[in-house]
């Protein structure tokens, strides 16, 4: 497959994020938000057909649903009832990989989806809440998507509110070790990272075309381990772009990263 030359940064991120799911085998892929959901859909339709996905409501689908309004005669490919309650049965089994976009991610890989600033009783900003994240993060792999890589998201110090478990020995639940925590890929508008550095430090995996390692470090509030050789994030193929377009017929992906920039910024 030859790489396309005309693609958006959102499409590059979708393809990069889909790699998170390619070696997962038969697990429930939960992509929360447009880019993670399209990434999981792309993986299910290409590199990992064993993936399972829901319709975001109550059914497992053997084919992912396109995003947004569908034609009146559209029939979802439901294969199994999967109400909300059953998601928890799945979570405890560990056969799930979720990808979502936390508001803060600290150097331990702990994240915050709950509250910013102020105090516990009176935060400055209330967000979605920790929801299932504590249980998810101790039970199954998780990946993150960050549409704007900056030092407010990747902040100095610890998250204002810790919603998910990271590689922080001081906060490990009783009876657990750091090996129980499995943070996979962190895909941003600048690069792909993981927590594969020494002592689970965040590490640069690939740079998006036209982005430098210095830019990544400047926009991260803690040290990023930068290997000597850093790959450039692979451009989408035309086949991947066609699948993404079919899964996102209303082009919601164009609104996920500010100003919808091109994928190659060199």
């Amino acid at each position: 497959m030859t790489a396309a030359t005309d693609y958006t940064l959102a499409e590059l991120c979708i393809v990069a994020a889909s790699k998170a799911f390619e070696s997962d085998g038969e697990v429930l892929a939960t992509g929360i938000g447009v880019i993670p959901r399209l990434a999981a859909s792309l993986a299910m339709k290409t590199t990992n057909p064993d993936l399972m996905m829901t319709d975001s409501e109550a059914w497992l689908l053997s084919e992912p649903n396109p995003l947004g309004k569908r034609a009146d005669d559209f029939v979802p490919a439901a294969e199994t009832w999967m109400g909300f309650s059953r998601i928890f049965d799945n979570v405890w089994s560990g056969r799930r990989h979720a990808m979502l976009g936390p508001t803060q991610i600290d150097k331990f890989g702990q994240t915050n989806t709950s509250a910013l600033g102020g105090t516990y009783d009176a935060p400055k900003v209330m967000m979605l809440g920790a929801r299932g994240f504590p249980g998810n993060s101790i039970s199954h792999p998780n990946s993150f998507f960050v549409p704007s890589h900056n030092t407010r998201v990747f902040m100095d110090g610890e998250c204002d509110f810790v919603s998910s478990v990271g590689y922080n020995p001081a906060r490990l639940p009783k009876g657990h070790s750091l090996d129980d925590i499995d943070i996979r890929l962190v895909v941003t508008d600048l690069c792909v990272m993981d927590f594969g550095g020494p002592d689970h430090q965040v590490r640069l995996v690939s740079l998006h075309p036209g982005v430098t390692a210095e830019q990544v470090q400047e926009n991260t509030g803690y040290p990023v381990v930068i290997p000597e050789e850093v790959a450039v994030t692979a451009a989408p193929t035309q086949e991947q772009l066609d699948i993404i377009a079919a899964m996102d017929p209303h082009n919601q992906r164009a609104y996920q990263i500010k100003d919808n920039p091109p994928g190659d910024r060199s």
Binding site: E57, A58, G83, F84, S85
Partner: peptide, 10 residues
């Protein structure tokens, strides 16, 4: 009768 009764039984 909807597709999901969420946690209503619990």
């Amino acid at each position: 009768a909807g597709p999901d009764h969420y946690m209503d039984d619990w």
